[in-house]
Write a protein that binds this DNA or RNA. Structure first.
Lengths: 343, 343
DNA sequence: ATGAAAGCGCTAACAA
DNA sequence: TTGTTAGCGCTTTCAT
């Protein structure tokens, strides 16, 4: 294979120094129109294209950001990633994606001072297996933006919706429909289950606010927020002594699984059991019945995450870590109000 | 910020040359147990970690592969990517992901001899906007594996299922249920629609094989294979003079959209219209009704793609381009046979 | 505005 | 088995 065309080759042909070629290629100032044109011609003639690897080494940066999520095939993340990639591309960044399966070791590897560290200039991270403590114990020089429920300790930005408020709102919606035995599927009463716990808190607040008792036996935990877990939990509830007449699910996938389980028993949604989800993924807009849900502004989350991360990457002195609240809203569909609301 | 620990620092402390340290760090042979240990101690003491960027430049490779798909939020791709990432990681490769939105220019940029070229050592590519010709016109040195329907020209590997056979099988299933007016949603009668055309061919073959006439007015094109397009096409069919009693959809998303449209009119699935999809995404296993579908072996596709790509990357003389057929099977669910088959 | 030259940190060909 | 050293191709400080 013949040698690649280098900057020096171009410089030689154009009769200038490599410094000047570099200036032209990178669009820096201080180049006469004449030299610029001469260089440009040489570039075209030789078919020169810069070697990214060399540039990376010289600059000490990779031009990549990493986005680390627990599961890629979760529609919520897939939809979010889509927007992140777009936003990053606009700023000239490539996106390295990895999924961790929620494995703490794997997650740690991404924020630790490891050998992969230089592969990306910053990380947008949605942790699942790492608690607050493990998060704090990381490469302090790594620009980091956290998605989901972890509180910022001031050294990174955190972006999420107000989970407590959103969950309260969701639960109130069910209570206001006159439902009396409202269940919750998705609680995770352990260190890494912060997000779930916030939702459970909102669930309780709604009951308090409406002066209704919380049915503790109707709060069900699930290891993950996916369809199978949702179906399993719902089946369990329906097998119980006093099955619920409404369910607040901690994700739309859980809701879809739950609905599947309800219908499988010949019961109706929402007549027998009303179901509300969380995330507003596209599935819920086309399912039968369509799913009432809490809709976070994913576009806002994605663009803000990229924006904040690039700002961090570009700053010599790290900006203070912010707590950012993304907008959200309740979207009412058939799974709580029936076909009446069909548009 | 204090200087990073380099290979030389380690060498100095251990009293050996940097060459030896490099050998130890990379696990090469030819190192005495004693020197090895001495070096290792120095590494630990200084907290040395290799600079990937420098290594990349020196080796002329990036240790990354790119996976390029049209849409990240399509469950089929999300599920596939999941397996690709796992397989790549096992071999020590990072995965750079990008979506092209099917934009031909963008797609070309990934296989062209551009400046990003060195960012990845090879590409797994699912083209949408590029036809066969545009594919051939690329950086010949780029190791490439193509997914989906494009025939290999011998310079890259191509992996896909037998679309014609699978589509024939799907259509036969509908005909064998006694359906007479079988529609097809998803045809794309233009250069970049090869995959769709193969499916249409299988659709026709099934009719021929069963001695039934094809209803040309029931073959509907869609720009994309997503829920909205499926719903729209189905609505169009139902508005027609002779609505179908069965539909072969070119993806599960199309099927889910179609089912949505059918139910929205108060019709029943499968009693009034039987629906079959393609891809076997998780959505179809939990939807109501569950979706009969063609299930390609995604794990096989992903691991084979990575395997073939790495083989290409590792070969000085490129191996011949293979046509690889992934296994597939028909999975019968409620959308064609009703709740009878419910398990 | 442009040139000369010293790195960036690692790998690997060549020697010893 | 280990050391020496010349790159890899670009960026960037310091001169001019």
């Amino acid at each position: 294979m013949r040698r690649e065309v280098t900057l020096r080759d171009v410089a030689e042909l154009a009769g200038v120094s490599s410094r000047t070629v570099s200036n032209v290629v990178n669009g820096y100032a201080n180049v006469t129109a004449r030299t610029k044109e001469r260089v440009q011609r040489a570039v075209d003639e030789l078919g020169y294209r810069p070697n990214v690897l060399a540039r990376n080494l010289a600059q000490g940066r990779s031009g990549q950001i990493a986005v680390v999520v627990p599961y890629l095939d979760t529609p919520y993340f897939a939809e979010l990633l889509q927007s992140v990639i777009r936003a990053a591309r606009i700023s000239g960044y490539n996106v390295l994606i990895d999924q961790t399966d929620g494995d703490p070791e794997h997650e740690r590897g991404f924020i630790a001072h490891g050998s992969r560290r230089l592969l990306f200039d910053g990380v947008i991270f949605s942790p699942l297996g790492l608690d607050q403590q493990a998060l704090a114990d990381r490469d302090p020089a790594l620009p980091l933006v956290i998605l989901g429920e972890r509180t910022s300790d001031g050294t990174f930005d955190h972006i999420g919706i107000d989970d407590v408020a959103a969950s309260r709102q969701a639960t109130e919606h069910l209570l206001d429909l006159g439902r009396r035995r409202v269940a919750a599927i998705g609680d995770q009463p352990y260190a890494t289950g912060e997000a779930a716990q916030l939702r459970t808190r909102g669930f309780r607040q709604a009951h308090e606010g409406r002066g209704r008792p919380v049915h503790e036996d109707l709060i069900i935990g699930t290891p993950r927020f996916n369809r199978p877990d949702g179906a399993r939990a719902m089946a369990h509830l329906l097998d119980g002594e006093n099955p619920p007449d409404a369910v607040f699910c901690y994700s739309d996938l859980v809701a879809l699984g739950a609905i599947h389980a309800i219908l499988a028993r010949g019961l109706r949604v929402p007549e027998d059991v009303a179901v509300i989800g969380y995330d507003d993924i596209e599935d819920g807009r086309y399912s039968n019945p369509t799913v009432t849900t809490i809709s976070p502004d994913k576009e806002w989350i994605a663009t803000t995450a990229v924006e904040r991360l690039l700002l961090r990457i570009g700053s010599s002195t790290p900006p203070p870590g912010l707590e950012l609240r993304a907008p959200h809203k309740l979207i009412v569909r058939e799974s709580t109000t029936g076909t009446i609301s069909r548009q």
